[in-house]
Structures are given as C-alpha cells and as structure tokens.
Amino acid sequence: MKTFETLAELAACAGQEVTVTDWYTVTQQHIDQFADATGDHQWIHVDVERAKAGPFGTTIAHGYLTLSMLAGFFDRSVKVKGVRMGINYGLNKVRFMSPVPAGSRLRVRVHLLGTEPIEGGMQIAWQCTIEREGADKPVCVAEPLSRYYV
C-alpha cells in the first residue's frame, strides 16, 4: 500500500510510477458473476467446454471485467490521508491488448500522469497498465481519472 499524507505529496509524484500492486487471480467464478451482473453471457466467457475448442483454449475474462478491477486494485494499493472521499471521474483512454484466460494472475503498474486543482480538492490523471503474469504484453492500458475531496 502506497500512502500519501496529503494531496500535495501525491501531486509531487506527477510523471512517476507510484506503485505496483500485488498479484490477483481472476477465477471462473469472477467471470461468471460479472456475466450475471451485466447480462453478457457470451460463450467465450462462460461456456468452459465450448471455450476449450476456442481460440484461447479456455474461457477469458470480459474486457470490462478487467477494467472494472481497477477500483479494487486502487483500494488495495493507494491511500491518500486527509481527504474525506475519492470518486471515479471517468476515463480518458482504454485499450484491451491481450486476453485474460480464467485463472490468470494480474497486477497493475500505477503511474501518475498529472493533477489539477478542482473546487474542494484535486483531480488526478493516472495511467494504469494491467499485466498478466507470464505474458509478453499488457492485457489493458487505461487512463482513469479520480477526484479527491478534502
């Protein structure tokens, strides 16, 4: 967990890698629960038998499941003291670059692109590179925006 005492301390890290998260395993249960929550039951995600004969030899996580996991990765890896709340504000860019087969272990490299003051706090632009253990390229690169309020 990377902890910042103040927003100013966080802002001073602009242009730097802030943290690399611990590895997290994406299970078939996660994939099935995401399918149930979103209604996206495409066979490549949820039909284990059919997916064995598919292009990846197994089921793969939804791209949006992978993206949504950023919230949990942030919660477990970055803390800013002295703020009353933080919110997700949106995304500037997202690319899904390779699949996440069921059972994969993922981690995130969190880079602080920049900050800007907003009324009552600060907006943070991040670059998050989601890596799959043993893969040559990232599974996703995203630029989420956060807002922290004091």
Rank of each mutant, 00 (worst) to 15 (best):
residue 64 Y to D: 03
residue 24 Y to A: 15
residue 26 V to T: 11
residue 144 P to L: 03
residue 45 H to N: 10
residue 66 T to Y: 10
residue 146 S to T: 13
residue 46 V to S: 05
residue 33 Q to W: 14
residue 142 A to E: 01
residue 85 M to P: 05
residue 115 T to P: 01
residue 76 R to A: 13
residue 24 Y to G: 15
residue 113 L to H: 05
residue 23 W to G: 15
residue 6 T to S: 14
residue 77 S to W: 05
residue 32 D to V: 14
residue 6 T to P: 12
residue 53 A to W: 09
residue 146 S to G: 03
residue 92 N to M: 08
residue 145 L to W: 01
residue 117 P to C: 03
residue 129 T to L: 08
residue 104 S to T: 04
residue 74 F to D: 12
residue 119 E to K: 14
residue 30 H to Y: 06
residue 93 K to E: 15
residue 114 G to Y: 05
residue 127 Q to S: 05
residue 77 S to F: 04
residue 149 Y to F: 11
residue 131 E to L: 00
residue 90 G to N: 04
residue 117 P to D: 08
residue 67 L to I: 11
residue 29 Q to G: 07
residue 46 V to N: 03
residue 56 F to C: 07
residue 93 K to T: 12
residue 109 R to A: 10
residue 62 H to P: 04
residue 117 P to H: 04
residue 46 V to I: 15
residue 74 F to V: 14
residue 61 A to K: 13
residue 136 D to A: 03
residue 80 V to C: 12
residue 62 H to T: 15
residue 125 A to D: 09
residue 42 Q to A: 13
residue 86 G to K: 11
residue 82 G to P: 05
residue 19 T to L: 06
residue 73 F to A: 10
residue 115 T to N: 01
residue 102 A to N: 01
residue 41 H to K: 13
residue 57 G to K: 04
residue 33 Q to V: 13
residue 10 L to N: 02
residue 78 V to K: 02
residue 100 V to I: 03
residue 59 T to L: 10
residue 131 E to K: 02
residue 43 W to I: 06
residue 131 E to F: 01
residue 138 P to S: 15
residue 58 T to Q: 10
residue 59 T to R: 02
residue 124 I to H: 02
residue 2 K to P: 00
residue 14 A to K: 10
residue 53 A to K: 08
residue 10 L to D: 04
residue 129 T to E: 10
residue 114 G to V: 05
residue 142 A to G: 01
residue 128 C to N: 09
residue 132 R to Y: 15
residue 131 E to Y: 03
residue 49 E to C: 12
residue 3 T to K: 08
residue 138 P to T: 08
residue 102 A to P: 02
residue 40 D to Y: 01
residue 1 M to E: 13
residue 8 A to P: 14
residue 134 G to T: 04
residue 116 E to D: 10
residue 70 L to C: 04
residue 123 Q to T: 09
residue 140 C to G: 06
residue 137 K to D: 06
residue 81 K to E: 08
residue 29 Q to N: 09
residue 17 E to G: 04
residue 40 D to R: 00
residue 62 H to D: 12
residue 100 V to S: 11
residue 128 C to M: 11
residue 137 K to C: 00
residue 112 L to W: 05
residue 126 W to Q: 06
residue 9 E to I: 04
residue 135 A to R: 13
residue 132 R to F: 12
residue 102 A to W: 00
residue 37 A to T: 13
residue 82 G to M: 08
residue 69 M to L: 14
residue 112 L to I: 03
residue 86 G to A: 12
residue 115 T to L: 01
residue 29 Q to D: 12
residue 106 L to Q: 08
residue 18 V to D: 08
residue 137 K to F: 02
residue 9 E to R: 09
residue 105 R to W: 00
residue 22 D to K: 06
residue 90 G to C: 03
residue 44 I to A: 09
residue 71 A to M: 11
residue 44 I to Q: 06
residue 32 D to R: 13
residue 106 L to D: 12
residue 4 F to W: 10
residue 90 G to S: 05
residue 50 R to L: 15
residue 83 V to H: 14
residue 42 Q to S: 14
residue 133 E to Y: 10
residue 81 K to A: 11
residue 15 G to S: 09
residue 97 M to N: 14
residue 46 V to G: 03
residue 10 L to I: 06
residue 22 D to Y: 00
residue 5 E to S: 11
residue 66 T to Q: 10
residue 34 F to R: 03
residue 87 I to K: 09
